[in-house]
C-alpha cells in the first residue's frame, strides 16, 4: 500500500493512499466535528455538514468525510469559512432539537454539547426560529427510551442495528422535515423485531436513544 504525506493544521501526517481525510485527521488526534460519519461504510452519507475543512488549492471549503487524502495536501480545519459553514449547519440541526439539557440524562456526554463547545457557539440558535417536531416518545421497550425529537438523523443506530442483526429493525422513513429514524410502519420498538442488544444506545451521539434505567447503564459515546 502506498503512503502519502499531508499536512493538517501544520502537523505532518502520513496516511495510506486513498484513505478518508476525516478518519486520517481523527486517528491522528485532530478533531473535526462530525455526526453522520461511519467508518466502515463504503460511501459517506455527508448529510450532517459539520466536517467542513479548507484544503489549499480548493476554492470552497469541503466536507472532510468526502475527501480522500492526496500527496502534499494541506488542510486547515480551523479556517474561518469552514467553521462558519459548520456553525450554520449546527444551528440548523439545533433549531429542531428538543433542547432540554437540564433534564437530559445525556448531558455531559452529549456530542452536541461537545460540538457546540468546539465551534464556540450556543446550543440554542440565536438567529434561527425554533421549529419543533413534537413527535411522540417511544418508551415501550423494556431497555430503550427513544425520543425522536432529539434525533439528529446521523444514522449510526441504523448502521449498528444492521451490522449486528443482519436484518435491521431501525431505518429512515418519511420525507423532508418529517424524516425520522423509525421501525417498520412506525411500530413501537417493543413490538418490533428488536433483539434487545441495545447497541444502538451506545452509538447515539445525542439523548435520542437512552437506556431505560440510566443509573444502571452508564451512557458512553465515542467522539
Amino acid at each position: 500500500m502506498r503512503t502519502v504525506s499531508l499536512t493538517i493544521d501544520g502537523q505532518q501526517i502520513t496516511a495510506r493512499e486513498g484513505d478518508n481525510l476525516l478518519w486520517v485527521a481523527l486517528d491522528n488526534g485532530i478533531y473535526i466535528p462530525n455526526l453522520c460519519a461511519i467508518r466502515d461504510k463504503s460511501e459517506p452519507m455527508a448529510s450532517c455538514r459539520l466536517c467542513f475543512v479548507e484544503v489549499e488549492g480548493k476554492e470552497q471549503p469541503v466536507t472532510a468525510c468526502t475527501e480522500t487524502v492526496t500527496e502534499g495536501m494541506i488542510v486547515n480545519t480551523r479556517g474561518t469559512r469552514a467553521l462558519s459553514l459548520a456553525r450554520r449547519s449546527f444551528e440548523l440541526l439545533m433549531a429542531s432539537h428538543s433542547l432540554d439539557c437540564a433534564h437530559c440524562p445525556k448531558s455531559g456526554s452529549c456530542e452536541l454539547q461537545h460540538i457546540a463547545r468546539y465551534l464556540g457557539t450556543r446550543l440554542k440558535s440565536k438567529q434561527l426560529r425554533e421549529l419543533r417536531r413534537d413527535l411522540p416518545i417511544d418508551d415501550s421497550h423494556p431497555q430503550i427510551i427513544y425520543d425522536p425529537n432529539k434525533c439528529v438523523l446521523c444514522g449510526r443506530c441504523i448502521w449498528t442495528c444492521r451490522e449486528h442483526l443482519g436484518v435491521g429493525v431501525l431505518g429512515f422513513a418519511h420525507r423532508g422535515f418529517q424524516r425520522m429514524v423509525t421501525t417498520f410502519e412506525d411500530e413501537p420498538l417493543a413490538i418490533s423485531k428488536c433483539d434487545r442488544c441495545v447497541e444502538c444506545i451506545g452509538v447515539c451521539p445525542t439523548g435520542a436513544l437512552l437506556p431505560r434505567n440510566e443509573t444502571k447503564t452508564r451512557v458512553t459515546s465515542e467522539s
Binding site: 423509525t182 417498520f184 410502519e185
Partner: peptide, 25 residues
C-alpha cells in the same frame, strides 16, 4: 402491510427499507 413484508422477504432487505421508500415517495 402484508404486501410490504412479502416484498422485503423477496428482495432480502429489511422491512423498514421498504417502508422508508413507500413513505418517501
Amino acid at each position: 402491510r402484508e404486501a410490504m413484508m412479502e416484498i422485503a422477504t423477496h428482495l432480502g432487505i429489511p422491512e423498514i427499507d421498504v417502508y422508508g421508500v413507500v413513505t418517501f415517495y
